[in-house]
């Protein structure tokens, strides 16, 4: 076997083991069930909105012309936060947990690089959280199409696939944050505290950014926040949270011109990709330099 094939094989071995372990955990089952329930409730209310013929909302699918995509967008808005918690819950002790359980030494003493271990875990958690999301969304989409007797247009199906890609990037960013926390902590408890802290911090930074931005331009909170008018420091506070670049609902609508968090569509996608790499690269650096015991 060539070195590349060897590395790819071991990567898959790690990914398979971690996927199997992840889906058997209580946290996966608990947050997974909550996610599915919220996605169902969201789809139900979205469908009800369509039945009531509500007015179109800027940046969201049109309930009249894209009824299934609209219902899915409401489903996203209900459930995506739980998906980020699930991603973080799976990854926060990926490395520190192995260290505490003394399995990390059993791994690193064998002919396998730490890079393979880290990225194998990354893919495993993506497959677990992302897989649950993709399956749930596809089932809901087919279910809504059947129950409402609507045949979505090919462009609507394309927008759905694009939006799922955006959500997967969003999930990846939280997995990367979890891996970074895990590489910096030594025990599962420290990692849990770190994950809770980071999650709350991201929320606080977003709200602080919005409050400071609105204060700077003397505006009261409205449903359509003018991020573009915010001063630079307020924008940065908002942009730190990967959630501020989540353009999944825009993607479902096929609206690529609306500004989200004051940024256009493609810049948001770039920021979303950056929010994966920014934690992942230091996670690799710290894991590679850390003691295995």
């Amino acid at each position: 076997m060539s070195e590349f094939t060897e590395s790819a094989y071991k990567f898959l071995v790690i990914a398979q083991k971690d996927f199997e372990s992840a889906v058997k955990t209580k946290r996966f089952i608990i947050f997974g069930v909550i996610f599915v329930l919220l996605a169902l409730v969201g789809a139900y209310y979205g469908n009800a909105d369509v039945a009531r013929s509500i007015a179109p909302i800027s940046g969201a699918p049109n309930p009249a012309t894209q009824p299934v995509n609209y219902a899915i967008s409401v489903s996203y808005s209900y459930s995506e936060i739980v998906l980020t918690i699930l991603a973080l819950a799976l990854s926060y002790d990926a490395l520190s947990g192995e260290r505490s359980a003394r399995t990390l030494v059993q791994l690193v003493v064998r002919p396998i690089t730490r890079r393979t271990i880290l990225f194998g875990k990354f893919v495993a958690y993506l497959a677990a959280a992302g897989g649950l999301f993709v399956i749930t969304t596809l089932v809901l989409y087919i279910g809504l199409s059947i129950t409402t007797r609507t045949v979505p247009s090919s462009s609507d199906v394309g927008y759905l696939i694009l939006s799922m890609g955006i959500i997967l990037l969003y999930v990846m960013s939280f997995i990367a944050i979890g891996l970074l926390i895990s590489s910096l902590t030594r025990t599962s408890l420290d990692s849990l505290l770190g994950a809770v802290f980071v999650w709350i911090l991201l929320l606080i930074l977003t709200y602080a950014g919005v409050a400071l931005g609105l204060g700077a331009i003397n505006l009261s909170p409205t449903s359509d926040i003018p991020y573009a008018q915010f001063p630079g420091y307020a924008k940065i506070l908002v942009w730190i949270n990967p959630g501020s670049h989540n353009v999944a609902i825009q993607s479902l609508a096929g609206d690529f011109f609306k500004l989200t968090s004051g940024l256009n569509y493609s810049v948001n996608v770039i920021f979303l990709i950056a929010s994966i790499l920014v934690p992942l690269i230091p996670a690799y650096y710290f894991f590679n330099r850390s003691d295995a015991v």
Partner: peptide, 20 residues
């Protein structure tokens, strides 16, 4: 990395994946 495949290690408390 050139010798680790030639070494075996038994830790004081060997760690394994308990649910496997």
């Amino acid at each position: 990395h050139e010798v680790r495949h030639r070494i075996g290690y038994l830790p004081e408390r060997p760690g394994f994946y308990g649910n496997f």
